[in-house]
Design a binder for these strands. Structure first.
Lengths: 146, 146
DNA sequence: TTGCTCCTCACGTCACGTGAGGTGGC
DNA sequence: TTGCTCCTCACGTCACGTGAGGTGGC
C-alpha cells in the first residue's frame, strides 16, 4: 500500500473512455499516447492523467472531426509548448514567455472557433428536423379532423 | 432549351457538397444514391433533389457520426415509407395511415435526440476550452503586472 | 479538333477489427 | 492452480484516395 499514483490497465481505460484496447495501442504506435519506459511484453499502465488525455483526443476526433495526423501535429505542438513551459521559471525573458502564451491562446481560440462552427451546423440541422416533425404532426391533425 | 429539370455532373455535385466524385460513386455502389437507368459508361446525371439528398447523408455521417451501414438501413426504411406514402391516397385505411405517420414521427424524434446529445457534448467541450483560455489570460495578466 | 471532365477497373491507405498463439498478474 | 486479461504479430475491413488507360460531351 503505497501513496504512489494508482494505475489502470488498458481494458479499464478503454471502457472508461468508450474505445477498444486496439484503439489505445494504435494511438500509442502513432506517438499520441506515450508508452515510454515499458519492458517489451509487460502490461501497459495508465494514470488518470492518461485517461484525461485520451478523452481529449477522442473528443477532438469525434466532435471536431480531426484526423489522427492532425492530432499528431497538435500533440507535437503541445509537447514543444510543454518543453518551453518547463523552462518557464528558468532563464527565459518575459518576451519569450509572452510568445508562449500567445501561441497557447491562439490554439485555444482556434479550437473554440471550430466548436462554434460545428454548433451552428448542428443547430441548422436541428431546425430542419423540427420542421419535418411539425409537418408530420400537421398531417396527423388533418387525418384526425375528418 | 427544354423545361426539363436541369441536370448536374458528378464533379459539380461533388464541389457543391464538399466531397470527391469517388465518394459519390461509392455511395451509389452501396445503394445510397440511386444510379438506376443509366447506360454503362455514360455520364451520371444529378438533379437538385439528388444534391439535397447527398447533403443529408453527409450531415448524418459527419454531424451525427452514423456509419454508412446505418445510412443504408435508414435509406431502406425511408424507401419503404415512400412506397407506402405513394399509396397514401389509395385504398389504405386510416389506421394504416396513422401507423405510417407514427414511424415517420419516431424517426424524426430519434434524430432530434441524437442532435441534442451531440450539442450537449459540444457545449461541455466549449466550456472547458473557455476555462483554458481564461487560465492563459490570467497568466498573461500576472506576467504584465510585475 | 483540342481540352477537360467523365468513365471503369484496381490497388493503396487510414483507422482500426479480429483472430492466433502465448505470457503474466490478482 | 485456474481464469481472466493482457501481450505481440498479422491479416481483414470500412470508407474512401489515387493512379492507369480509355471514352465522351461543350
Amino acid at each position: 500500500m503505497s501513496l504512489a499514483e494508482q494505475t489502470l490497465r488498458i481494458g479499464q481505460v478503454a471502457e472508461q473512455v468508450g474505445v477498444t484496447p486496439r484503439t489505445i495501442r494504435y494511438y500509442e504506435e502513432l506517438g499520441l499516447l506515450g508508452g515510454a519506459g515499458r519492458n517489451k511484453g509487460a502490461h501497459r499502465q495508465y494514470t488518470d492523467a492518461d485517461v484525461a488525455r485520451l478523452r481529449e483526443l477522442i473528443r477532438l476526433r469525434d466532435l471536431l472531426g480531426l484526423s489522427l495526423e492532425e492530432l499528431v501535429q497538435l500533440a507535437e505542438a503541445e509537447e514543444a509548448r510543454a518543453a518551453l513551459r518547463d523552462q518557464w521559471r528558468g532563464d527565459q525573458t518575459d518576451d519569450e514567455r509572452r510568445a508562449i502564451l500567445d501561441r497557447a491562446e491562439n490554439l485555444a481560440r482556434e479550437q473554440i472557433d471550430l466548436v462554434k462552427a460545428r454548433r451552428e451546423k448542428l443547430d441548422e440541422f436541428a431546425d430542419e428536423l423540427k420542421q419535418k416533425l411539425r409537418r408530420i404532426q400537421k398531417r396527423r391533425r388533418e387525418l384526425e379532423r375528418r
